[in-house]
Design a binder for these strands. Structure first.
Lengths: 339, 339
DNA sequence: CTGAAAGCGCTTACAG
DNA sequence: CTGAAAGCGCTTACAG
């Protein structure tokens, strides 16, 4: 019974080889003779040897770890992406270090620094809007990096995502086609969230094309919570009872808005149309089922894993910009404008 | 312009002190004279020095990292717990390493080993049912460990959670009080999920006390997905149209069941009562709002952070068992049994 | 295919 | 309060 955790030296001694050979056996097995390999594997098994990640990282300058910072994991849409990112990494024997910024740019910077000091081989962030020092810090470390959930052909950085402006366009056009002209907006905070901002810009632009404008007073920004959205819709309707269409920043907000409409006895979609964003798993099973836009979260997550792994393995840092499409999904919460 | 990442030696040189002093300045600031400290901090800042986590971990045998393995992060209820676990750790300058097992015990074991080799100072798992080697591996590493989401006064391991049997009792009693006698169950897979198993056992026990028994054919186990629950309810109702109460393993399943009832034109709760579990954030805003049981996920998550941190700092490994209560929340999906 | 040895960047008794 | 030096457990040219 050894009461000390066995090291590579213990394995080497037991297998009667050098530590260098044990190391090779672990990392480049074909470079060691099969019979030796067998002896080493037996020793490893007998000793219950587990390599020290810290020592390996220090010596090899590789951690086999990738960092990701999302605004929150408490949103099924990010969870889906992370789940897929993670499984892509796990298959390649990489581990995901997950942090969340709570939609704060300063907090995100802190997390980036912490991950960097921890030693990561690659990093993924959500959106394109970050603290300027974030880019600085990452570039200093010379590791592959990608902005997820956003697509900007002119970005200086790699990105994997979709065009939020286009998505906003589609939403607005759909509502316009249904004859709506009186809009309200319940959005996430746009100052620190470029996805929220761009979606709104998209809506705004499409409306402007037909000379429609949403007054400041009918745009509410709030935290992505059902409760906040509920009170926001009440607020909006108090300010202007003639609104016939509400665009919500995501499905969670839309669920809150739906509940407020119900409380007011306003029927959706007959009197009021409501749209969401993301197409969360449960949405089609709700009644009424939300009209929303599909965020390709799983595909983005998987792609991020692939991107990072290939760039880490090849030690390349060139920029890639991948665009996925986000389709409008019309369901039961939008209909012709009343009257 | 240095084109090499600065090390502690560079800082030491620039500040004209030894590396030992820089190290102390970082870890035990009060042990170094204020003026020296200032010089060092300036050097750190000027150089843009970031300590190497790997080197620190290797030398100190501490990683300031805690591992957590949950069945899936794609469930808002686990996300909430993780969010709180994480924020507790972050405040103490620890980082959370998150992995998920996909409800597989073998996968969980793999993840445990990977985390252990990575070097973690503590670990939290969900539930009490694990691969026997999981306990073995963790004990060999002598790090604090806690089973979350479960409370068992007789457990050999620390646990922070609630009593799933009691929760099942409450659910069944509520339905019994409403006059139900014909039950159906849509549960998660019980073989690898002790929470699912115990909740069911709780229901079963309470029913048995009044001589009621749920036949095998009216118990369906499935993945925690809305779609699966939807088809499960159809299946159940095909097998026995006289069922008046359905207990679902969690809220996600209940939402699926609700949608199936709607598809069949069965009114809830008049003709059919449905219960969920967890009380996810959106539940009270849905229509009908689910009768469910509140899982104290946030409190469990925070407590896990506290538990781990204190045991890591004090290098203690004694067992603690913390019980939270899970209350039944009666809303709109349960009512008196028809007829 | 294998080994001796330097080195990765820190921490930590030990002395002073 | 500070420094010299050993050591943490690996990897990796370099030789052979």
């Amino acid at each position: 019974m050894q009461n000390k955790t066995p090291t590579i030296a213990d394995v080497a001694e037991k297998a009667e080889v050098s530590t260098a050979t044990v190391s090779r056996c672990l990392n480049l097995p074909d470079k060691v003779k099969p019979e030796v390999r067998e002896r080493i594997n037996k020793a490893i098994h007998d000793l219950g040897y587990v390599p020290s990640g810290a020592a390996r990282a220090l010596a090899s300058r590789r951690t086999y770890t990738v960092g990701a910072i999302v605004p929150t994991i408490d949103n099924s849409i990010f969870s889906e992406a992370i789940q897929h990112l993670q499984s892509g990494l796990t298959q390649a024997n990489y581990t995901l270090l997950l942090a969340n910024s709570g939609y704060s740019l300063d907090e995100e910077l802190r997390e980036v620094k912490s991950l960097l000091s921890r030693g990561i081989d690659g990093i993924v962030l959500v959106g394109e809007m970050h603290h300027p020092k974030v880019y600085e810090a990452i570039e200093q470390h010379k590791i592959p990096y990608v902005n997820l959930w956003t697509y900007n052909p002119k970005s200086r950085y790699s990105c994997i995502g979709f065009d939020h402006i286009k998505a906003g366009n589609q939403l607005a056009q759909h509502l316009l086609d249904l004859g709506h002209s009186k809009f309200g907006i319940i959005s996430g905070f746009q100052e620190t969230n470029d996805r929220a901002l761009l979606r709104f810009k998209g809506i705004q632009k499409t409306l402007k094309a037909v000379d429609l404008e949403i007054p400041e007073s009918l745009i509410i920004e709030c935290r992505y919570s059902v409760a906040k959205a509920n009170s926001s819709l009440h607020e909006l309707l108090d300010r202007d009872p003639d609104i016939t269409a509400i665009c919500c920043g995501n499905d969670v907000l839309a669920i809150g808005a739906l509940s407020a409409a119900r409380e007011r006895g306003i029927s959706v979609p007959d009197q009021l149309s409501i749209t969401g964003f993301d197409n969360m798993e449960i949405i089609p099973y709700l009644s009424p089922a939300l009209t929303t836009v599909n965020s390709p979260s799983k595909r983005m997550g998987s792609h991020a894993a692939k991107y990072l792994l290939s760039h880490i393995e090849n030690k390349t840092l060139d920029i890639e910009r991948i665009e996925y499409t986000a389709e409008l999904i019309v369901r039961e919460t939008t209909a012709k404008a009343p009257k």
